[in-house]
Design a protein around this nucleic acid. Structure first.
Lengths: 135, 135
DNA sequence: TATAAAGTTGTTATATTATAACAATGCGTA
DNA sequence: TACGCATTGTTATAATATAACAACTTTATA
């Protein structure tokens, strides 16, 4: 129940709240615009908060969109294993939480002997709605 | 043997060559700088070539780095399934071609009923060399 | 208490990445 | 030829992100 929100600074809380309320991934500058009434005035303030929230696992960055979403998993405190599905048409983004998938990827290792401690996976396609409406 | 390079325009060939020669992922503006002696003067010329080459599957974009690498698979003509391993220390990027992995991901479908036609996966960790030197 | 250390914030400026918009050119083909 | 169409060149600007440093807060410690 009690989130680690106590450990967040004022700006971090402001930024986190706005991302959590949003229904879609938010861009940094749209966040900046939204929080100007709350006293955050400049890009570095937003980007610093975003960086911190990412490290804490509170939010994730959708790399292919330069946008940010809240982590759907309440207990999430790390950010080392992320998977998303992204609709090419309506741009909807959903975090995938599939234990089999995460297990498979966490255990994956290739021929080079490199071992991974982090991954990010982005799937693209048409969501159910868009598939219906377009075909 | 014969590549589809015949279908590339002049600028596309120039950009592809420089990416293929490079040992690491190249940024768009570093490409721009390198090809100015060949007559390419402005960002849109580079970005247009990059877009085309990506569509053709000749190169891939490393989303977490905003950088571009040549596809290692000679026969690659599509760009819908990519996986990379990225060293957090030396920034080395390697394209993973692991049939089991690609099969697994190509067949993956989640509970939402969404079906994917494309994915991009980026693994992070320490490469063999860096692991040795740091630990 | 005071004062250092570390972290957070605010601020200005600027770097980096990417695209809009439109004119000019070349090229196949009807 | 003259049309359509893709590619190219060009200028300007949009969008994304960070450097650098001063001010302020909190905590830690002498």
């Amino acid at each position: 129940m009690t989130q680690k929100i106590d450990f967040l600074s004022k700006n971090q809380q402001i930024v986190l709240e706005i991302i959590e309320k949003a229904k879609e991934p938010l861009k940094a500058y749209s966040i900046l615009f939204s929080v100007q009434k709350k006293g955050i005035k400049a890009p570095p303030q937003v980007y610093r908060a975003l960086d911190r929230l990412i490290k804490l696992g509170k939010i994730h960055k959708i790399e292919s969109k330069n946008a940010f979403v809240a982590c759907k998993n309440d207990n999430c405190t790390i950010s080392n294993a992320t998977a998303f599905s992204i609709c090419d048409n309506c741009e909807m983004v959903t975090e995938i939480s599939n234990p089999k998938l995460s297990k498979y990827l966490a255990n994956f290792h290739d021929e080079t002997g490199m071992r991974y401690n982090k991954y990010n996976l982005e799937f693209f396609g048409l969501c159910k709605k868009c598939k219906k409406n377009k075909i």
